[in-house]
Amino acid sequence: MTKILVIEDEIVVGEMISMYLTDEGFEVLRVETGRAGQEALSSFQPDAVLLDLVLPDIDGTDWCAAARRLSEVPILVISTKSKVVERIEALDAGADDYLCKPFSMQELKARIGAAVRRTKPTAIASGPDGPPPPEPAEPPSAIRMDLHKRQIFVDETPIETTFTEFELMKLFFEFPGRVFSRDELINTVRGIDSYVNDRAIDVHITNLRRKFEANPKEPRYLKTVWGVGYKLLLG
């Protein structure tokens, strides 16, 4: 699995990129500071780095130059800085590509793929003996809801949820497989959570995944439908 390190201190942007790439089959680690990114470059050993130039502790261009002295990992800058001189500075510092925010997630994925192929062409090869055998699949877990007890169970283990989280899940369970936009989810909990907004919905979804998904980064049940919203898959 291709590993992507996302260095982005803007929480909403970072989480949206991470969720999209995770749903597309990447292994993603997101950090919010340049220093944490330096540590992750060594410990996580990513196949590519997405780097915001505006970080709270280190200038992104300086981070790029320092990383390039240590590693050949592809670095794709993602930034609101759009001036030609700023792009040139980043590329001169060692960046492999530069995307100005806002950008298309599909284009981001394509550019990541191109960068990884340039540096690791053997990554897409099967090898002399063909592709490795798939790892044994873990037995699927079962998720259910008890409306009377206001409880969600995973393999008969109760999962604690907040009132708002339960109301969201109740809607998902009522219409499994249907894609709900963030506005629809906001309307569901409006009046319960007076501070609910797009960002709050994303946080609730992230928290729910942490509570009942075996691997929150690769959710089996609560799926993101990019550009639309979320849906629940059962069975």
Rank of each mutant, 00 (worst) to 15 (best):
M1R: 10
T2H: 03
T2D: 00
L5W: 08
L5K: 10
L5I: 03
V6K: 01
I7A: 10
E8T: 05
E8S: 06
D9C: 01
E10H: 10
V13R: 04
S18H: 05
S18P: 02
M19C: 07
M19T: 12
M19K: 13
L21V: 07
T22W: 03
T22Y: 00
T22C: 15
D23Q: 15
G25Q: 09
F26C: 05
V28P: 07
V28M: 09
L29Q: 11
V31N: 04
G34W: 02
R35T: 10
A36D: 14
A36G: 00
G37H: 02
G37A: 06
Q38C: 03
E39D: 09
A40H: 06
L41T: 10
S42I: 12
S42F: 10
S43V: 13
S43I: 12
F44V: 09
Q45V: 11
D47E: 13
A48S: 12
A48F: 00
V49K: 10
V49M: 11
L50G: 04
L50M: 11
L50H: 07
L51F: 08
D52S: 14
D52G: 06
L53N: 01
L53I: 12
L53D: 05
L55E: 01
P56S: 13
P56K: 03
I58L: 14
I58S: 06
I58V: 15
D59I: 11
D59E: 15
G60Y: 10
G60N: 11
T61Q: 13
D62R: 15
D62F: 09
W63H: 15
W63F: 15
A65G: 01
A66F: 00
A67L: 06
R68E: 06
R69S: 15
S71N: 12
E72C: 05
P74G: 03
P74L: 04
I75C: 08
I75Q: 10
I75Y: 12
L76Y: 03
